[in-house]
Design a protein around this nucleic acid. Sequence first.
RNA 1: UGACCCGUGGUGUAAUUGGCAACACAUCUGAUUUUGGUUCAGAAGAGUCCAGGUUCGAGCCCUGGCGGGUCAA
Length: 390
Amino acid sequence: MAKRVVVGLSGGVDSSVAAYLLKKQGYDVTAVFMINWHDKTGVLDADCPWDEDVLFAEMVAKKLGIPFHVEDLSVPYKKRVIDYMFSEYERGRTPNPDVLCNREIKFDEFFKATEKFQPDFVATGHYCKKEETEVQGNRVYRLMAGDDPNKEQSYFLCQLSQEQLSKTLFPIGHLRKEEVRKIAREQKLASADKKDSQGICFVGKVHLPDFLQQKLEPREGNIFEIPANSPLYNNGQPDSLEAQITPIKYKISDGEFVGKHQGAHFFTIGQRKGLQVGGKKEPLFVISTDVEKNRIFVGQGQTHPGLYRKGLHIHRDEIHWVRSDLTMQTGEIRNYMVRIRYRQALEKATLYMKDGGMYIIFDEPQRGVAAGQFAAWYEGGELLGSGVIG
RNA sequence: UGACCCGUGGUGUAAUUGGCAACACAUCUGAUUUUGGUUCAGAAGAGUCCAGGUUCGAGCCCUGGCGGGUCAA
């Protein structure tokens, strides 16, 4: 008897080909489209985001001859992703809604919503791979980077658990985007040449200030420029772990007033656009925000020392091991490759496990380390764990 | 009050011996990107504080205003 798989069919080319491959491999495939967002406030391209997608999904399902269902997960999506996003921005942090979307919705609510189809697996069109191994007699699932270096999406799944992985299939992780499109064309799938989706998953491409202003009030505040040669950057030898992970707390007197903003919580570290301060020789980048006092501190040029940090800290409660069998014990030190943002190169780092949490110290200072984003550590193409940057 | 300097796109600057204004930043659009980080490409945007004058022709020369600054007392 064929194994049964529910595939999350989004209407895009990736999940379409995933469904096709599963069918070809002999699975009993059921397609389910999730609706997660109705509101169009602040969304660009107001041309009906999902009603078009659902049409594509249905066409693909029909073409493949597989059952097609729609599940509305917009209530939990709002509660578990969007609300989190607002509250993080409000606290002056930079959330990653898509990581949450995967952990909370696609690999949780969606699992529950499709239980009625009694699937053996749930599949998605992510560019990553699952492998299995055995550790001391126990089966262990490994989350591997996708083979297309350009589309590789393991980072977005960095918060998945063994439990979630055990039920998951990633049919296209070994393919490159061109190959996926080629297959889709050969099979004449409606989504073959559909443009890749962008923006916050399910919500779509948004004008962030407008979107955030549904909940967060604009508040005028001041912008201060910190000179690159500020004495703040010469503080001796910051060799202690604590010193290396602690961001500088800037004061007004450290810099010079250069302009006004409409709310410090709308900005993230490393951001260039939207400051509306011109007349500088080089572009200004946000190096720090103070939401309580509603101040933004900026530095001039790509190489401004304030843009870089040697390390970061993850609170004990926020540490997540995809490979739970590899969990570090207090006092342990390991070397892994780490990334702190999607599509960023992996960087060499040393992880120190302490009582309060994990310290990640990079070999080279990293640009734009933003609280709220996820740091994910890898070894040999496998994502081992991740955590919210504190 | 006396002397000197300055006044150019949103901002900061540039424009050889006078020949219809350049660059950077900001802005906008597009590309890239399942996080408005970044990056990349393109576009728009001033007729040069005002009023006169010299000249074939002035942002650049002259005169007078207005505005800002520096030094002097």
